[in-house]
Design a protein around this nucleic acid. Structure first.
Length: 590
DNA sequence: ACTTTTATAACAGGTACCCC
DNA sequence: GGGGTACCTGTTATAAAAGT
């Protein structure tokens, strides 16, 4: 990392940065340590080290060298990912969203934890009377009664001699003040020491002093009645305190409610996720307990047993172990929210498994064996499309719809799919379950229903031109609903295919044109049909597409544009889709 | 030809940490 | 304080296998 001229200059761990430089006029290396890298840099600058700047692994900003307008263009619309600071709340540290200029986020930040106002702690935190009375627990409602019945006897020494502030002031009983303060600051919600002293001197004794000790009178002489008066004040204070306890309970309940509200306000998990989670949990139960159905989730508390079960059942398949645990984490959070240890047990295992998985991963930008065996170059893909196109043009397009065989339809759809995925950046399987709205049907009730619904559709917005409207796709939360105008070539293929194979969906089933291909079937259809010798699905097509685009080191702007079109982020594209090497380490031949 | 189940990968949001 | 990247997390896809 560092050259021989500048050896290791700091230790990263423990936040310790040590200067190992030998400064001018010094016989040995410096050895001064700093808590931050910046501080060390400052030191190096002051002592004239060259260069004073320490090397950094940090990648340059993607905005570097750009004009403000260009930077604004590149900047993602959503600013939610970033966090400006953390604020301490009852629930621990919470992130405050950045982008304060956007009103929505400002509001989100304000309500990140909608903490209700905390009740004011009464001056009297704990009933000192019990403390005064030989540390006995005494309840306010029984105090007066007991006192009247003579069960409580207050000796004069109990209070005035031992605890009177005057005595304390005279240092005859400094220990009592210390104990008093200790008593009142002992609890988490207690007073701080200064407050406690003030309380001792003023709030507790001053009002009593007025009644108990008339000026110039001695305590002993005042006696009887005034003791009762004092008791009343004590009881009132104790009542205040009990009231406070109730309020505090109420407050805690409100905090809990608010937190739950925030939880609920989260965008609900997709139906699919819930389904998958349910399946996982059910299957786990059946395998783990060897019974069909469960009517409660108590069995999930057996974390050790379940973890062991996973380990035994999927010794080689770490991802199965991890995905098995995920829904349990969710269940624990919801169902056993007060059993933190249970959650942590699962969580610990989960992270351990993930770590193992990461270690087994091939390096990024390398193809896996399987990917390599299914890999097609862009030329091969284009060739295949041309081949299919010839077949379609020569043998299918002249036919009448009723003459079309199943095989014809399959070829037609294969060609359509390859066109959709190659004439424009390859999307995911979002072309499945995508109804077509023909230009002449735009006003119809059915069309209007589709367009106002929550699903994707392909709209023929003018004769022979198609637009894909995407409302439901993997990254919709980030990219928002979006629409893509199909390139002219794709439009032609769509229009031609519709003439000979009239159907409701862009990709309909062969035997029932009014039914869409499911996502699964599309996957299967691609991987088994597009090429005879290789399973090329949408995911691999995306990798081929990105890798080809990246092979000539495009600009950041171009990277970002492509990522936008493919509905993922540039960093994901780089990490996941961009491949340069075969599994054996040689360069991919594009 | 297509669906369902099982297995695995992709992806954005949140957080940690860094730098100015 | 504010802007950035890296990394972690857990949700939501696709791929493969099995079933109808």
């Amino acid at each position: 990392m560092t050259s021989s001229a500048s050896p290791q200059l700091w230790k990263g761990d423990g936040g310790c940065f040590v200067c190992l430089e030998r400064h001018a006029n010094e016989s040995q290396s410096c050895g001064k340590s700093f808590v931050s890298k910046q501080a060390l840099e400052g030191h190096r600058k002051r002592t004239g080290c060259e260069p004073w700047k320490l090397p950094s692994d940090r990648a340059p900003s993607k905005y570097r060298g750009m004009g403000p307008e260009a930077a604004r263009q590149l900047k993602p619309v959503s600013d939610r990912a970033a966090v400006s600071k953390y604020r301490t709340t009852l629930e621990g540290e919470r992130a405050v969203h950045r982008a304060r200029h956007i009103a929505k986020y400002r509001l989100m930040a304000c309500s990140a934890v909608p903490s209700p106002p905390m009740p004011k702690v009464p001056a009297y935190v704990r009933p000192p009377i019990s403390w005064l009375l030989a540390d006995a627990e005494v309840f306010p409602w029984e105090l007066k009664e007991k006192f009247d019945r003579g069960e409580i006897v207050l000796s004069h020494a109990t209070w005035s001699l031992r605890f009177h502030p005057d005595k304390v002031q005279q240092r005859r009983s400094g220990e009592h003040l210390r104990r008093f303060v200790e008593h009142f600051t002992g609890s988490a919600d207690g007073l701080d020491p200064e407050q406690a002293k003030a309380c001792y001197a003023t709030e507790l004794f001053a009002p009593l002093n007025d009644e108990r000790f008339k000026l110039g009178q001695s305590a002993q002489k005042a006696g009887g009645m005034l003791w009762r008066a004092w008791l009343s004040v004590e009881c009132a204070l104790i009542d205040d305190y009990s009231e406070y306890l109730v309020e505090f309970e109420d407050y805690l309940a409100k905090v809990k409610q608010a937190t739950e509200g925030v939880e609920r306000a989260r965008e609900s998990r997709k139906e699919l996720t819930v389904q998958q989670y349910t399946k996982h949990v059910t299957r786990l139960f059946q395998g783990f307990k060897r019974q069909q159905d469960f009517n409660n989730l108590e069995w999930i508390r057996d974390a050790d047993g379940i973890i062991e079960y996973f380990q035994d059942t999927y010794p080689e398949k770490l991802s199965m172990q991890a995905t098995g645990i995920t829904p349990l984490l969710v269940v624990c959070k919801k169902q056993f929210s007060n059993d933190k240890r249970l959650y942590e047990r699962y969580y610990e295992r989960y992270t351990a498994v993930r770590k193992l998985m990461d270690e087994l991963k091939p390096p990024p930008q390398y193809l896996t064996e399987r990917e390599a065996s299914n890999w097609k170059t862009l030329d091969q893909i284009n060739e295949r499309r041309v081949e299919l196109q010839r077949h379609v043009n020569r043998k299918i397009l002249h036919k009448k719809p009723e003459e079309l065989t199943i095989e014809d339809k399959i070829v037609l759809i294969r060609h359509l799919i390859l066109s959709l995925y190659t004439y424009s950046p390859a999307l995911r399987n979002d072309f499945s379950e995508c109804p077509i709205i023909r230009f002449e049907d735009i006003g119809s009730a059915e069309a209007r229903e589709l367009m106002s619904g929550s699903g994707n559709y392909m709209l023929e917005y003018e004769k022979g031109r198609f637009r894909l409207v995407l409302k439901d796709f993997k990254t919709v939360k980030h990219h928002r609903e979006t629409s893509i105008d199909m390139p002219q070539r794709s439009c032609n293929v769509i229009a031609e295919s519709l003439q000979v194979f009239p159907r409701k969906y862009l990709l309909s089933r062969m035997r029932s044109p009014d039914q869409p291909m499911s996502r699964n079937y599309l996957t299967k259809f691609c991987s088994t049909g597009l090429f005879k010798d290789a399973a090329v699905g949408s995911c691999l097509l995306r990798k081929i597409c990105v890798s080809n685009a990246m092979k000539d080191a495009p600009s950041l702007r171009e990277r970002d544009e492509l990522a936008q079109q493919m509905l993922h982020s540039a960093s994901i594209a780089q990490r996941v889709y961009e491949k340069h090497y075969m599994p054996d380490g040689s360069r991919i031949k594009f």
